[in-house]
Amino acid sequence: MPAPATPPVLALTLGDPVGIGPEITVRTLAEYADDETHHGVAVGDAVAVRRAVAATGLDLEVREVSGFDTAPAGAGVIDVLDIGVLEGKELAWGEVDATAGRSAVTAIEVATRAAMAGTVDGVVTGPINKEAIWASGSEHLGHTEMLGELTGVTQQDTMFVVASRHAPDHRLQIFFATRHVSLRTALDQLTRERQVDSIRRALQALEVYGVAEPTLAVAAINPHGGENGAFGTEELDEVVPACEQLRREGLPVHGPIPADSVFHQGLAGRFDGVLSQYHDQGHIAAKTYDFDGTISVTVGLPILRTSVDHGTAFDIAGSGRADHATMRSAYLAAVEYAPFVPRMRSAYGS
C-alpha cells in the first residue's frame, strides 16, 4: 500500500461508555502514542476515558484537545476530544443506559462529520449497544445506518478483512449479499439481480481499497453447492446465472463454490474476496479463523470507517480484562487504508 503524504489522523469513537470500548481504545492509543507515523484521537466523554485508564491500570496522562490538529505529545499521553454528554457523571459499568447511548451516538456524529470535512483521515469505531442507542431516542439499527445518514449514502456494504496465515502478505476480504435479516428472509432476498449487484459492488470495493486486478469468489448457498439441484435449486436458479452473466462481461468472478471450502481457498491466496450469501456464513468463517484479527470496514461511504467486530462485553466492562487486539487491528487497518480516502470520495461521494 502507498504511504500517506502526511501522517494520518484517526478518530477513535469510544462506543458505549459503560462497555469495553473505552478500555480497548485507551490501550490501543497508549500502544501507539509515541509512533509519529500516525495519530489517534479518542472521541467521547473525557470522564469515560479517564475511568478506562484507571480500570486498565495504565500509567497515562489524558489530554483534552479541542480539535484534531494538535500534534501528539508522545509516549504516556493520549488525546481525547470531549463531547460533554456525560457532564462528568460516572455511570454504572455494564448496564443499558439511555445517557450512555446518547454519548455513543454523539461520538459517532462528531467523528463522522470530522471525516466528511477532511479534518480526520478516518474513523475507527468502538462497540455500541443497540438497546442503549434506541433508549437514547435513535431509531437506527446500528453504526451502518447512522453513517449512511450522516454521509448521505443509501447503499453501504460490510467488508471483513482477514489476514491469512497461509499466504504471506495476503488478506481476504469477505462481503455479504444480505445482512441483518433472518435466514428465511435472506433466502428470499438472494435473487439473480441481487447477486449481480452484490458482485459488482464487491469488485469495486476491492479496487477502491487498493487491490490491483482483484478476483472474487461467490459462495454457494446450499450444501455441496446444491449438487445440481439435489440439495436445493437456488444455485441453478439465481447464483449460477448471475456469475455466468458477469463472466461474459469479462469480470473475474468464480463460483458458486461450496461454502465449506471457498473461505479456505480465499485465505490460501486463490481469491482476493469472497461474497458470503448471508450473515453467519461469512461471520463464522472469519471469526473462527481469527477472531481478534478480523476487522470490519464499511464500504460505499465517502469516508474511511473501520471497526471492531465484537460487542460491548458488558459482563467484563470495567474489570480491565478486555483484550484490545481487535481494536488494534481496526486501528492499524485504518492507518493502511488512509491513502485510499481520495478513491473513496471519488467512488462513493455524491
Rank of each mutant, 00 (worst) to 15 (best):
F68D: 04
G19Y: 05
A54H: 11
E249R: 11
S329R: 06
T306N: 06
A317I: 03
A42W: 07
A259L: 09
S261K: 09
E213C: 01
G84C: 03
R343G: 02
E207F: 01
G225T: 05
N222M: 12
Y278P: 05
R194C: 07
Q277D: 02
P339C: 10
Q245A: 15
Y278S: 10
G282D: 14
V110D: 13
T99K: 08
Q155R: 14
G293T: 01
D309A: 05
T119A: 15
Q155E: 15
F263G: 02
H166T: 10
S307K: 01
G225W: 03
L246N: 10
I20K: 07
R51W: 13
P252G: 07
L10W: 09
T56R: 12
V9Y: 03
F231W: 06
H324I: 11
Q156N: 09
Y337C: 00
R184C: 06
G232W: 03
G148E: 04
V274M: 06
I221S: 07
G229R: 12
M159P: 01
S296H: 04
R51T: 14
E193T: 14
S319I: 13
P302G: 04
H324K: 13
G101R: 02
V308F: 03
A46L: 00
G152V: 10
R345H: 06
G225K: 03
I303N: 03
V240H: 09
T312N: 02
F175E: 06
F175L: 11
P342D: 02
A48N: 08
V153C: 05
L86C: 12
L246W: 09
A333G: 04
Q155V: 13
P72H: 10
R248Q: 15
G76Q: 14
T70A: 15
V161N: 00
D272S: 08
V181H: 08
H254D: 13
V299F: 07
H279P: 07
A330P: 01
T37K: 07
A330E: 10
N222L: 14
T294S: 11
A285H: 03
V308Q: 02
T191R: 05
R184E: 11
F271N: 00
L60C: 09
A33Y: 11
L251I: 12
T25P: 06
G273W: 09
V110T: 15
A313V: 01
H38N: 06
G94A: 15
T306W: 02
D290T: 03
V211L: 10
R321L: 14
G229F: 12
I221G: 04
T158R: 01
P223Q: 10
L275H: 02
N222I: 12
W134G: 14
V77R: 12
L203G: 08
S136P: 00
F160T: 01
W93H: 08
L246C: 12
V341D: 00
